[in-house]
């Protein structure tokens, strides 16, 4: 489904990604963990080409997104803006800071892209948007503007907005990090529901117990590299590398009561 092949990215002299490869099967939920600055967020942003990257390619269902390989020249070619925009329709993304459009109410936020990008008739798009908002538990908030919604509600609207494009895969970038602790649960519940429904997901998070619950596979990144990956219980309870052990120890020390 998703193939990330040997992606490298630098900011100036800082190498953020150093040849990351990752493949995600249909319906699989992959959780990416790792210390801050390890390149998790950058990886997600590169998948969607919100960041350009110097080396490597990404494909969704075999279709390139961002760069296509020119076989004759043996080189990567950047796709046109229009092609990239079309490719992004297949990839839904939810952000740490929600990024709802503040001048649209919840319903308009969810409907805008299906109507304007995909050209779906208004009535059908609206019915689908209401359905999605009901699914994330916000059927009574369709007419509210983002400023009037709590962080948890905003984030659930953002999830519905991404789903409205019927993406093949969903990317979640630390979606609960900006939330008050008591609002985290409702967002995680929506994601769990989505995972159970068979959505392919790549999730960057700091919530370890949630990672364990939801993940089919956990990927540990450090210093721009995938250091270790495996089944949740295996990686979290009997990691193979010292770096993962050290990370988990720091994490446990911090959160032990």
């Amino acid at each position: 489904m998703l193939e990330v092949a040997d992606v490298s990215k630098r900011f100036g002299t800082l190498e953020v990604l150093r040849g990351v490869s990752l493949s995600v099967a249909p319906g699989e939920v992959v959780v990416v963990i790792g210390p801050s600055g390890s390149g998790k967020t950058t990886l997600l942003r590169c998948i969607n080409l919100l960041e350009d990257y110097e080396r490597g390619t990404v494909t969704v269902d075999g279709d390139p997104i961002g760069y296509r390989l020119d076989r004759r020249a043996g080189q990567r070619v950047r796709m046109s803006e229009r092609e990239i925009a079309a490719a992004r329709e297949n990839v839904g993304m939810v952000f740490q800071s929600f990024n709802l459009f503040p001048h649209m109410n919840a319903l308009q936020n969810v409907m805008a892209a299906p109507v304007r990008v995909k050209g779906i008739p208004r009535a059908r798009a609206e019915a689908r948007a209401r359905e999605l908002l009901t699914m994330v538990g916000l059927s009574d908030k369709v007419a509210e503007y983002p400023v009037r919604l709590s962080g948890g509600q905003q984030q659930r609207v953002a999830i519905a907005r991404a789903l409205a494009m019927d993406p093949k895969i969903m990317l979640f970038d630390e979606v609960t990090s900006a939330l008050d602790p008591e609002l985290v649960g409702e967002v995680l519940a929506a994601m769990q529901q989505l995972a159970r429904a068979g959505m392919t997901m790549v999730v960057v998070t700091h919530e370890m117990s949630f990672a364990r619950d939801i993940a089919d596979r956990i990927v540990f990144m450090d210093d721009g590299l995938v250091v270790e990956q495996g089944k949740p219980d295996q990686l979290l309870f009997s990691p193979a590398t010292d770096r993962v052990r050290a990370f988990l120890k720091r994490y446990n020390d911090r959160y032990r009561i």
Binding site: L50, E81, A87, R88, G92, A112, A113, R116, V117
Partner: peptide, 10 residues
């Protein structure tokens, strides 16, 4: 970011 991730052209 949000607009681009929804597949909007510039």
């Amino acid at each position: 970011d949000a607009a681009r991730s929804l597949g909007m052209t510039r």
